[in-house]
Design a protein around this nucleic acid. Structure first.
Lengths: 206, 206
DNA sequence: GTTTTTAATGAACACTGTTTATTACATTTG
DNA sequence: CAAATGTAATAAACAGTGTTCATTAAAAAC
């Protein structure tokens, strides 16, 4: 009897319906306006129904967060076209900045918000999405080393964390409006200049 | 007639009473539990009274945020004892990490939360607290240049932003639980290693 | 002493996430 | 097929949240 299969399929459809509504609300209204009641109204179900398919709002955030990582990784794939390993790393950095600036709320969800991480913590799982994208960075850096760059580098993981830290810091300073201490409105130029300086700095370690 | 003076003084006292209660709640319960009703109960006034002294909760966050900057700057002052300019910069970095790890919620308030910045934005002011502490970093880097370090550096502001970006990124990756992608529990060692690597990188630019 | 100004509040508004008892319907069993 | 069981959906409530406003009480000015 395929009843259990159908039920399982229907359940998955419902989970998807909820997630789609949540995503739409998130992207159009922002995550602060993405309320359970709002999602319920959008799919024409009662708010309580959502809790039959998702444990809590954090789990919904976690699912959206996974989507966002897929989107980011898809945008990263274009750097494969860059042949020189070091230039590929630079291109990856630019893609990262581009993604963050074009999707500030997704970036927040992926790297700043605590909600999705709480779902992960209570399941005692490792952060797979982070691992995957960080793994991509490690590969790109590894290619640099294989091509003769970064000769003094003995720990790829540490190098990756260091590079990511800079990128993440620069972006969050901007996204969280901490560049408002500069009186001029040259935020974008400052990001560009700082990025270039950092690239020069890591070039220094050839 | 000193009545207006007394009233002004009483008003300032009341603002302080509210702020102290807010700070206590913030530090003991965390910012998510720092509610207007909670503050009101602590000072034995009605919630509505708070709105006679503060425009909204964001303004309260902004005041706390200013306090936090004073506290951080006070902790920074110890680096003045370090004579070598470059070592002073390194010491400042360590103090920054120490402050962030010891006061994660203050750090959040100072550099991540949007609430205090919104108060600033609607007043169309520059972010003075940020300017002051960033100014301190610029001075420390300036001393390095005067002592012969960073010879290739033509833009102190850009160097400062770049260094701060790394520090801020590394810390927020940790504070916002994004190091949970590493299966081992070596978060502190990783921070230490990455910091050391970055110090080596900027040393490279002598 | 009366009027005016000001400080404080209770109550309400419009929300939020989440839980639970109840209802309605689909599925299984006798 | 009818009765019993299982399950999906919900209305309503709980316990909060920030904020506003008309009303009341007290202080200051006249």
């Amino acid at each position: 009897m395929g009843i259990t299969e159908r039920k399982e399929r229907e359940r998955e459809e419902m989970r998807d319906l909820i997630l789609q509504a949540a995503r739409k609300l998130f992207l159009t209204q922002g995550y602060e306006k993405m309320s359970i009641r709002g999602i319920a109204e959008a799919i024409e179900y009662s708010p309580a129904t959502i809790y039959l398919y998702y444990k809590d709002k954090n789990e919904l955030f976690f699912s959206l967060h996974k989507d966002a990582f897929q989107k980011m990784m898809a945008e990263f794939s274009v750097v494969a076209a860059v042949t020189d390993p070091f230039e590929r790393l630079v291109a990856l950095g630019r893609q990262y900045i581009k993604f963050a600036i074009e999707n500030p709320e997704l970036y927040d969800l992926m790297f700043i918000m605590e909600a999705p991480m709480e779902t992960l913590a209570c399941r005692e799982e490792v952060w797979e999405d982070g691992q995957t994208s960080f793994g991509f960075l490690k590969i790109v850096i590894g290619d640099c080393i294989n091509a003769g760059y970064f000769k003094n580098t003995e720990d790829i993981e540490n190098s990756s964390l260091t590079i990511w830290s800079f990128m993440h810091g620069l972006i969050t300073i901007y996204l969280k409006k901490r560049m408002s201490m500069f009186e001029d409105n040259r935020e974008m130029e400052r990001i560009e200049e700082s990025f270039k300086l950092f690239v020069e700095m890591i070039k220094c370690r050839f």
